[in-house]
Amino acid sequence: MSQHLKPSVRITGLALAVAGAFAATGAQAQDKGTVHLAYVEWSSTVASTNVMQAVLEQAGYEVETSALSAAAMWQSVATGDTDALLAGWLPTTHEDYYARLKDQVVDTGVNLDGTKLGLAVPADSEASSIADLNEYQDDFNGEIIGIDPGAGLMRLTENVVDAYDLDLDLRTGSGATMTAALGSAMDRDEEVVVTAWTPHWMFSRWDLKYLDDPQNVYGGAEQIHTIVRQGLEEDMPEAYAILDNFNWNPEMMGEVMLMNQEEDSDPYENAKQWVEENQDVVSEWLPES
């Protein structure tokens, strides 16, 4: 389990400006305890987790974060080793995790609507459907570039390979290795097919398209849910309320994800900047005083 800790109180102009909104004095902030967030290192989840970290810290909590595999992320909340995750892709991507652990966790609801899963290729590719991939397999070097093997997207893509009887190999890796391979292919103007999801910054950086999925193996649009441990509402009602109220849209998340792609940028510092510049949105996540 990889952890990094952030200090709970930062006396900045921003903290002072929103102190009333958070109803937290410096003395109160020291007494609120620690919220432990689990996340998987997908660009979308890095964005949402850092934004929530910044918000909870301004509310007076210390925040710890742990980067885990998707399966371990869910398990850590179910066992109470961590308090919450912001990356519950339902009803399809994480359906196995949810089915197994739903009686051990609390689903507070949707934090982002309008997601999509599938296979993406350059927009000018001759392939337009997953069913076309065998015809153009040589163009794609006989492979689909995937992400971490424990991801729900990879499980679905394995089903896609079977359903469409594809002759392409599904390569495992990570979100970072997938986008690196995609970027290299796009720079060389070569064909490439990758496991993809929306929201993701790659659709802003490169001209891509999803392949049609006539068998609907990937399913329709999904939603991202906030999942918390049992007992959090009783132990930390204010923190629970903030997590419960957290809701944004793909455009907002996309802003943060693009900031995170800048050279030498710090996702945590970017999240703090986004929170500072979007206080009207953040105020809606705070419990009423």
Rank of each mutant, 00 (worst) to 15 (best):
I11Q: 12
D266L: 03
S265N: 02
D83C: 05
V18T: 13
S129T: 08
H36C: 08
E95F: 10
E64N: 11
M1D: 15
E262I: 04
S8R: 15
A70H: 00
L68E: 09
G150N: 12
N111S: 15
T34D: 04
T79H: 03
Q215G: 08
Q3W: 15
N159R: 15
L119H: 05
M259G: 08
D124T: 10
L286I: 12
I130N: 11
S44Q: 06
L243H: 04
A221P: 03
T93Q: 07
G254F: 00
V160K: 04
A221W: 03
S125Y: 01
L86W: 01
M178K: 15
S2D: 11
D167L: 06
M52W: 04
Q230H: 04
D138A: 15
D148L: 10
M154C: 14
M202D: 05
L182G: 01
Q230S: 10
D83Q: 05
L14T: 12
S8K: 14
I224T: 10
Q273K: 13
E263I: 04
L112P: 01
T25Q: 08
S125G: 04
R10F: 13
N159Q: 15
V105L: 13
N134H: 07
D169Y: 07
N245K: 08
I144K: 02
D81A: 15
Q53L: 05
A23R: 12
W197N: 08
Q104C: 07
D162T: 07
L86P: 00
I11V: 14
Y98T: 00
A19M: 10
G146H: 02
P122Y: 02
P214K: 03
L166G: 00
E233M: 03
K209S: 10
L243A: 05
Q261G: 07
N270G: 06
M1A: 15
A19R: 10
E284R: 12
Y61R: 05
A78Y: 02
D31S: 15
I227V: 14
A17W: 14
R10L: 14
S289H: 15
V51W: 06
Q279I: 13
T157F: 06
V160S: 08
L258D: 13
I242Y: 05
A21Y: 02
T108H: 08
A196E: 06
L182F: 01
V55N: 02
A131W: 09
L211V: 02
F140K: 04
W197Y: 13
A131C: 07
V46K: 03
A38W: 01
T34C: 08
A176N: 10
S265I: 02
G60L: 01
E255A: 06
F203I: 02
P267F: 06
F140L: 10
E233Q: 09
M186F: 02
G114N: 03
N159T: 13
Q75S: 09
Y268F: 12
P91W: 06
M73G: 02
P199S: 09
A131I: 07
V110G: 02
L112S: 07
G175E: 06
W89N: 03
A15V: 08
P237H: 05
S129H: 06
T198S: 14
A241S: 12
L101A: 05
E276T: 13
I227G: 09
E191H: 09
E288K: 08
D132T: 13
A72P: 03
Q104Y: 09
Q215L: 14
T179G: 00
T179Y: 00
P250S: 15
S174N: 09
